[in-house]
């Protein structure tokens, strides 16, 4: 996919990336960091990847390094790590081709399981945005109705955001991309340079795959619903707005939403209805 000299340019020969068994955590960690990331700033240690901020050919870049998981069997670990790296890149490209905002892929190194992605500047997660909007709304309640207008504006703003999310997900599903880990932490709000509104960027396609089945799309929405409602209490109405906009934006939404209802009921200990 990418010329070999690029690899040489970027990544001097790797230290053996295989982890030592046992031992202390701290030295082990540094031993497993690929050399080309030694100078990079560690932004986040996620559940399955470390995210670094660095430069790639002069551009601000995020490197996502999938590290091996010592708790799982070596064969299983290698299979999952490789498959997810491939799938992640494939889904991002598919989204971008369809005009869905997602970070550009600069480079992929399959030896160290690193993906070099465009850094989304001037952005914050939808999760933080909703949380801070909710918080400021509840503050204004205490300041009595003086700020009721502001509260209303904020509510409208959140509804608009939910609509935007619904539209983008509809578009993504119409492209048969299943995100696999839809949460409000995996959506970024990018402010436009002149501060005129903001657009939504989908990130972390680490669990994504391609499928046309309404079942898979339904489960994708179910995952989001649960993450959404558990992260942001009292947002049931807001999530309904999101689904409504999803259904309005997608040609194939009715089959997907029907599946979503089915999947909801499938949770075995669901309350009995009727």
């Amino acid at each position: 996919m990418t010329p070999d000299h690029l690899v040489a340019l970027l990544c001097p020969p790797l230290h053996n990336p295989r982890r030592r068994r046992g031992g202390n955590m701290a030295p082990e960690k540094s031993a497993t960091v690929p050399q080309f990331l030694r100078g990079a700033e560690l932004v986040k240690q996620g559940a399955e990847a470390r995210v670094y901020r660095t430069q790639f050919l002069g551009r601000p870049t995020i490197v996502k390094e999938r590290f091996s998981k010592r708790y799982r069997h070596v064969a299983l670990d290698e299979k999952l790590t490789r498959r997810r790296t491939v799938q992640e890149v494939r889904s991002i490209l598919r989204c971008r081709r369809a005009g869905i905002p997602a970070p550009a892929v600069y480079f992929v190194d399959y030896t160290s399981h690193c993906i070099f992605l465009e850094e989304i500047l001037r952005s914050s997660t939808v999760r933080d945005h909703i949380a801070s909007t909710q918080q400021s709304a509840s503050c204004t309640v205490q300041e009595l109705d003086r700020d009721q207008d502001r509260e209303l504006v904020q509510e409208q703003e959140l509804e608009q955001l939910a609509q935007q999310v619904g539209q983008i997900l509809a578009k993504m599903h119409d492209e048969d991309v299943i995100h696999g880990d839809l949460t409000t932490s995996n959506m970024l709000l990018r402010r436009s340079p002149e501060d005129r509104g903001s657009d939504l960027v989908l990130i972390d396609f680490g669990l994504s795959y391609i499928s046309a089945l309404p079942e898979d799309k339904g489960v994708d929405l179910y995952v989001l619903e649960k993450a959404f409602l558990s992260t942001h209490p009292h947002t049931e109405a807001l999530f309904q707005k999101l689904l409504k906009s999803y259904s309005a934006s997608s040609k194939k939404s009715s089959a997907v939403l029907k599946k979503l209802d089915e999947v909801r009921l499938r949770g075995r200990k669901r309350s009995m209805v009727g």
């Binding site: 999952l80 696999g180 669990l207 995952v223 989001l224």
Partner: peptide, 13 residues
């Protein structure tokens, strides 16, 4: 011997 089996994780499910 590790035999490969289906592995199904969907988000947190």
């Amino acid at each position: 011997q590790y035999m490969e089996l289906p592995y199904t994780v969907k988000g947190m499910d």
